[in-house]
Structures are given as C-alpha cells and as structure tokens.
Simulated scan of single mutants.
Amino acid sequence: MKLLDKYILSKFLKTYVFVVGLLVVVIMVIDFTEKNEKYIKNDVPAEAIIQYYMAFAPWIANLISPITVFITTVLVTSGMAVKTEIVAILSGGVSFRRMLVPYLI
C-alpha cells in the first residue's frame, strides 16, 4: 500500500468513525427523550435502559452505515479539494482512477 493510499484511507476512516459516532449519539438521545416518560411511568431499572442502548447502538450504526459512507466520501473529497490536495495529487502524475483506489477499499 502506497503512502497516498494510507493517507486517504486514514482520513476516510477517521471521518467515517466520527460521523457514525455522532449520528448514533444523536439518534440515541432522540430515542431516549421519546421513551423517557414511558421508562419513568413503568419504573424501568437503569440497568435495563443501559442494556437496551448498548444493544441499540450497534444496530443503529449498522443501519445508517451506507449513508454515512456516502457522507464521509463527500466530506473527505471536498476537504481535499478545498486544500487543493487533489490538484497536487493529479499534478504529481497519479491518475484519477489510481487516486480512487482507497475509496473503493
């Protein structure tokens, strides 16, 4: 794996983990606020709520994963374009198709 691949892949994975984590937290907070009244009304113990959200987080992360891949691709590519990194990569003799290899991984 070339240095360029590692650079783009690391930027992509960092952004992907951040976006997924952020969306999962937002969705869990919204879900908790919607169900909070029912938890209080039915005297649900805190351990059961924590256990529910520990199982809910991976499920929701898997559910939103396809759209977050798209969002991450757009964010990373636009960030590289703003810093003119794409122009530098293409000017350095790397073909556009070769530059897209880390995105396909």
Results as ranks from 00 to 15, higher is better:
P58W: 07
A48M: 12
K38Y: 15
I86P: 04
Y39N: 09
I40W: 11
S65R: 11
T77F: 15
E47R: 03
R98G: 15
V87K: 05
G21W: 00
T84L: 14
P66F: 08
P58Y: 02
L23D: 11
I40Q: 13
L104H: 02
I86Y: 01
F70D: 06
N36D: 07
L100E: 12
S65Q: 11
Y7C: 03
I105R: 06
M54K: 14
Q51E: 15
R97N: 10
F18A: 09
V101K: 12
V19S: 06
F96C: 00
V94S: 05
V74R: 01
R97S: 14
I105Y: 12
L75I: 15
S10V: 11
F12P: 07
M80S: 01
V94N: 02
V19K: 00
I50A: 10
T84Y: 15
A88H: 13
I89S: 00
I60Y: 09
F32W: 09
F32I: 09
L100F: 09
V69S: 00
G92Q: 09
I30E: 12
I71C: 03
I86K: 00
T72A: 00
T84W: 08
K83V: 01
R98A: 13
F70A: 07
M1T: 12
Y53F: 14
V87L: 06
V101A: 06
A88T: 04
A61I: 08
V87C: 08
D43L: 07
T15E: 12
T33S: 12
L13A: 10
L4S: 08
I27L: 12
K2S: 15
L63Y: 12
G93C: 00
V29S: 04
Q51H: 15
L100N: 07
S95V: 06
V87T: 13
L9R: 11
M1F: 15
K14T: 14
Y39T: 03
K14F: 15
E37W: 11
I8M: 01
K6Q: 14
P66A: 01
F56S: 03
I105F: 11
P58M: 04
M28D: 14
A46M: 06
V69C: 04
V44K: 01
L104N: 07
M1P: 13
F18K: 14
P102G: 09
V24P: 05
L4C: 02
K41Q: 12
I64M: 00
W59T: 15
P102Q: 03
V101N: 02
I71K: 01
P58R: 00
I71S: 04
Q51S: 15
L100T: 10
P102A: 04
F96T: 15
L75M: 09
F56H: 05
V76R: 02
T72I: 03
Y103L: 06
K41V: 14
V94T: 09
Y7V: 08
I30G: 07
E34D: 08
E37K: 10
M99Y: 13
G21Y: 02
D31P: 00
V94P: 09
D31G: 05
V17N: 00
G21R: 05
